[in-house]
Simulated assay, not measured.
Amino acid sequence: MIIADVTFYPIGKGVSVGDTIEKVVSRLKNNNSIKCYPNSMATVIECSNIDILMDAIKDAEKFIENMGFPRVETILRIDSRTDVENSVERKMKYVS
Rank of each mutant, 00 (worst) to 15 (best):
F63A: 09
R77Q: 08
D79L: 14
D79Y: 15
S40I: 00
V6S: 03
S96Y: 14
C36T: 12
K58Y: 13
V72I: 11
S26E: 09
S40F: 10
K62T: 04
N32G: 12
E22Y: 15
V25Y: 10
A4C: 04
T82W: 09
D5K: 15
E73H: 10
N30S: 13
V17G: 02
P70H: 11
I64L: 08
K58N: 15
T74C: 09
V25C: 05
K93I: 10
V95F: 11
V44Q: 07
P10T: 00
L28A: 02
N66V: 13
V44C: 09
D83R: 08
I45W: 11
V17E: 00
I45K: 05
I2F: 01
L76R: 12
N32D: 14
P10G: 05
R81H: 09
F8W: 12
S80F: 09
V95Y: 08
K29C: 03
N49F: 00
I3G: 06
V17K: 00
S48P: 08
L28S: 02
P38K: 03
M67D: 10
I45M: 06
F63H: 04
V88S: 01
I52V: 13
R90H: 13
S33I: 12
N66G: 01
V88K: 11
R90F: 11
S80D: 14
S96K: 10
M54V: 12
S48D: 15
V88N: 06
M54S: 02
V24Q: 03
Y94Q: 09
I52Y: 12
E46I: 04
I64T: 07
R90Q: 13
V24L: 03
M1G: 08
I3L: 05
N39P: 00
Y9A: 02
P70M: 06
A4N: 00
V24W: 06
R71P: 02
S87R: 03
Y94M: 15
I50W: 15
D79V: 11
D51I: 14
F63Y: 08
V17W: 01
M92W: 08
T20G: 04
E89D: 09
T20D: 05
I21R: 07
T74E: 05
V84Y: 07
P38Y: 05
N66K: 13
D79R: 02
K23P: 00
S87L: 01
C36Q: 07
E65M: 13
N31H: 11
D19A: 11
M54F: 12
N49T: 10
N49W: 00
V6A: 04
Y37W: 09
F63V: 04
I64P: 05
V25L: 01
N86Q: 04
